[in-house]
Design a binder for these strands. Structure first.
Length: 213
DNA sequence: CGACTTTGACCGGCGC
DNA sequence: GCGCCGGTCAAAGTCG
């Protein structure tokens, strides 16, 4: 009886360790996928041949030295992704605690969904603008590009969560987002014969390792 | 009536 | 110089 219990607790311990490893790998993979999605959306929002410096990846401040007429890159430019439940919803409203006034909408060449232009309407002196457009790859994903910095406080303490647009703040929302990501990853990987082969190798080698354990 | 949205026109940068 | 394209303007419409 005690042997059985010891055996079970040992197996339990092994399983827990394996789960930890899998969990860590999953996190690493998800970070990688997020990064890839961001890179992908950068390319889909801006024509790669005519990419402007003002729309480069956030945080990249290299190359900020004055080179002729080139604008300084990434000054106050921030990119945010919002998931929406209903891809047919055309409102593209993103609640972020500030009040925005729409001043234009355009269909861009490389993305069939229109891009909406907003200005911060709280203060006439506030220079912040934002652009909202659906991702060309995933219509359920809104890409919001903020330009500039607010020179005033937020209007609302917390952004209101609407059915059409949600922030990925709560654990449940993160899980939901993760589910979709995993779905997409699995789908794309299933179509890759090399991956299936590698997966089979990895599983077989893993089974051998476990047997030796 | 004021604030906001819609939408066609216009402007400037860029490539050819 | 011309055409394309993204960004902005502004008049008209809509809504509460």
């Amino acid at each position: 009886m005690n042997d059985d219990l010891n055996q079970m607790s040992l197996e339990n311990k092994k399983l827990r360790e394996m789960l930890t490893v899998v969990w860590n790998k999953n996190n690493t993979l998800q970070n990688h996928v997020n990064k890839l999605m961001q890179d992908n959306d950068v390319l889909s929002l801006t024509n790669p041949n005519k990419r402007k410096f003002t729309e480069c990846e956030e945080g990249n401040t290299s190359g900020s030295t004055d080179r002729g007429s080139l604008k300084r890159p990434n000054e106050g430019v921030m990119r945010v992704y919002r998931r929406i439940d209903d891809p047919s919803d055309k409102s593209m409203v993103v609640k972020d605690g500030y009040q925005w006034r729409k001043y234009g909408q355009k269909v861009t060449r490389d993305n069939p969904s229109p891009r909406a232009y907003y200005k911060c309407s709280f203060s006439p002196s506030c220079p912040v603008k934002k652009k909202v457009q659906r991702s060309v790859d995933d219509p359920r994903l809104l890409v919001v590009i903020y330009e500039g910095e607010h020179n005033h406080e937020r209007m609302e303490k917390e952004p209101e969560i609407e059915s059409s647009s949600k922030r990925l703040n709560s654990p449940m929302e993160v899980l939901k987002f993760d589910d979709v990501l995993v779905e997409q990853m699995a789908d794309s990987l299933r179509r890759n014969p090399d991956f299936i082969e590698d997966l089979a190798d990895a599983i077989s080698s893993n089974i051998l390792e476990c047997d030796l354990f």
